[in-house]
Design a protein around this nucleic acid. Structure first.
Length: 593
RNA sequence: GGUCCGGUAGCUCAGUUGAAUAGAGCAAUUGCCUUCUAAGCAAUAGGUCAUUGGUUUGAAUCCAAUCCGGAUCACCA
């Protein structure tokens, strides 16, 4: 299945060769959608040939247009030249053919397996605090990119590295030990991850106070930060953990267990899932082998104190530590080891890391080191870097409690969905279970769409007062359009009718088919850019086009039986493509709402 | 300070492989429910595309400089 633009390009290249005996390539051509105020469907920009061919744009346009029309009467039905633009009109027969052969194809734009294997690592939570809005952006992005790749023919392995050990985990552990008096999630009726998160905040409160007291007593701030009793206790706990001290390990397992119970609920709710979980407690020692190997290869060097480094100054970066003087791993050491582990286990062709842009430098270094170590997978690593979600007041900080909690967020969206639905009163015959499902569909649709509609690379601002909206450029708008179409199709199904007319397409009908035809190219773009937002924007524009068409023309009371069939097909295909595009974003679409 | 990312309507964002008069949504104003779901449609208003210079037939887009905001450059993860 070839897009119309990629069909036109070789035809133009051929015509240019025939007419002017000059070789052009498809890359030399610019073909855009024709602006609505002009006659035509697609436009060839002529300026680039003017100089080379020494003819006026008008003359060129007319000659090329004439030849294209003559050679391909089944594809082009007309042309016009305005200034330097050749506007081409595609035949109605072409458009209706697209419609008839695809209106009922739920896999339109999807591809069959291509034999390539991709790993997508996303989510990567810490087990010391609950998930917040920033994690949701990561989860939705990772899941969506994986789904887009899957439907584009890749074998996809979704993985997750859980940061379940380290000093930050010990912080909530020690605070629990000191202040909980044996309280548990059960005894306090609190979701496990939230329960543990409270002690992480508690740690930071106490720590801050202790540092202040020490500073008041005349100690320098830097020293006080090291000497605060609770911090010393935490560091001791980390040493005990690494030594495998039973009571610490037991506490660690217990608290992590609480967190996992909480995470499971949230992941299930928002639809995140993984094929392979990695735990840092299993992998954090792995990279040491790579460091030894790199030392032998001369990629790394050892300083006098025994610490191991790599010199990246020739690559415009700094010297980077890869192993501490006491022989313990740092962050990058672990990532080196994990990368190796993942490759040995899955032999992927591509490995995508969905990680916030604050780690751009780290990921650059990781890739560079793997390249220098001569790893065969080094170049297959792709950092899908996304911007942080910020509040109007600035960055969210777990330590300071200025975060929008993921569970709270979902709950609030569900409430808004319920109120709005009740207010409109269109689904009064739904059962409790059906209503609950509908609220979830709408709430998560709104939330996912909101977080995915923005270019991942860009940081985004979340304003709680203004961002919860179900009108306009939102998930519920697209979902509503789908429900609206389904309402028509419940009255009458589209059928394979070859009696539907192949001429006389109305403007709004054609606009819709033209948009539908572009869907496969949009998916390809989403794959190439690792960018789901193009699908969100596309789905919105498609829904908007349908709504305009819908208010202007009646399907059930069409001018003729043929028109009705055509419009039923048009409705069916629009509903399919909306459902399809939304499914790639991880968003469900309801039959009614 | 070095590196990277960003600055487009009151707000949130598209457009950045150069192409016709820079587009949406929200907010504001105004119309449209006896006709397939008004979570909709139509319309009005809102812009020195941060600034300056350059390249080009053509610049929001490319180049240079400047200003502003953010991230990062840890023996933290």
């Amino acid at each position: 299945m070839m897009s119309i633009v990629s069909r036109i390009k070789p035809l133009v290249v051929q015509v240019l060769g025939d007419l002017y005996k000059q070789a052009f390539t498809e890359a030399d051509l610019t073909i855009n959608s024709t602006k609505p105020e002009f006659e035509g469907d697609y436009t060839l920009v002529l300026f680039s040939f003017v100089k080379q061919l020494k003819k006026s744009p008008e003359q060129l346009g007319n000659e090329i247009g004439e030849a294209l029309l003559k050679n391909n009467p089944d594809l082009f039905s007309g042309y016009n030249v305005i200034k330097g633009f050749l506007n081409l009109t595609i035949t109605d027969a072409y458009w209706t053919e697209i419609l008839q052969s695809n209106y009922n194809n739920a896999r339109f734009g999807f591809k069959s397996p291509n034999g390539e294997k991709v790993m997508v690592e996303y989510s990567s939570p810490n087990t010391n605090k609950p998930l917040h809005l920033g994690h949701l952006r990561n989860n939705f992005l990772g899941w969506s990119v994986a789904q887009i790749l899957k439907e584009s023919g890749y074998e996809v392995i979704k993985s997750c590295i859980v940061n379940d050990r380290g000093i930050h985990i010990c912080k909530s552990m020690i605070a629990w030990q000191l202040f909980a008096n044996g309280a548990t999630p059960q005894s306090t009726n609190t979701k496990g991850d939230h329960f543990v998160g409270e002690y992480y905040v508690k740690f930071n409160d106490v720590y801050k106070k202790q540092v202040e007291e020490l500073v008041a007593g005349g100690m320098k701030k830097e020293e006080a930060e090291k000497e605060a009793p609770i911090m010393k206790g935490t560091q001791q706990m980390l040493l005990d953990w690494e030594a495998g001290k039973p009571d610490v390990i037991e506490l660690w397992k217990k608290m992590n267990g609480w967190v996992y119970e909480g995470f499971d609920i949230t992941y299930k709710r928002v639809g995140s899932d993984f094929h392979k979980m990695y735990y840092e407690s299993d992998t954090y020692l792995l990279g040491k082998k790579d460091v030894e190997e790199g030392l032998k290869q001369g990629v790394f060097f050892k300083k006098d104190d025994g610490s191991v480094w790599i010199d990246l100054t020739a690559d415009g970066l700094d010297e980077k530590l890869v192993l501490r003087k006491d022989g313990t791993s740092v962050y990058i050491t672990q990532d080196l080891g994990l990368a190796q582990q993942k490759y040995e286990e899955f032999r992927y062709d591509q490995s995508i890391y969905v990680i916030a842009d604050e780690q751009n430098y780290h990921m650059k270094v990781l890739k560079l080191i793997l390249q220098k170590l001569g790893r065969p997978y080094a170049n297959s690593i792709y950092h899908l870097s996304y911007g942080m979600v910020e509040l109007p007041t600035g960055r969210m900080k777990s330590r300071e409690g200025t975060v929008v909690d993921a569970d709270d967020m979902v709950e609030e969206m569900v409430n808004v969905a319920r109120h709005k639905t009740e207010e409109l009163g269109k689904v009064k015959d739904f059962t409790e279970a059906e209503l609950k499902e509908l609220y979830d569909t709408i709430a998560l649709g709104a939330l996912k769409f909101f977080l995915l509609r923005v270019d991942p690379k860009k940081k985004m601002i979340f304003n709680p007062e203004e961002s919860i909206d179900f009108h306009g450029f939102t998930g519920p708008f697209v979902q509503y359009t789908h429900a609206r179409i389904k309402s028509i199709l419940r009255k009458e199904k589209a059928t394979d009718s070859h009696s539907s007319p192949t001429t006389g397409l109305l403007k709004l009908e054609k606009e819709l088919i033209v948009a539908l035809e572009q869907y496969p190219v949009i998916i390809e773009q989403a794959v190439a850019e690792h960018n789901p937002s193009v699908l969100a924007i596309y789905a919105f524009n498609l829904a908007k086009s349908f709504n305009t068409f819908y208010t202007e023309h009646s399907v059930m009371n069409a001018e003729s039986e043929e028109k009705k069939q055509l419009r039923l097909q048009l409705s069916a295909m629009t509903a399919n493509v909306i459902a399809s595009a939304m499914s790639l974003l991880g968003i469900k679409v309801p039959e009614r709402m």
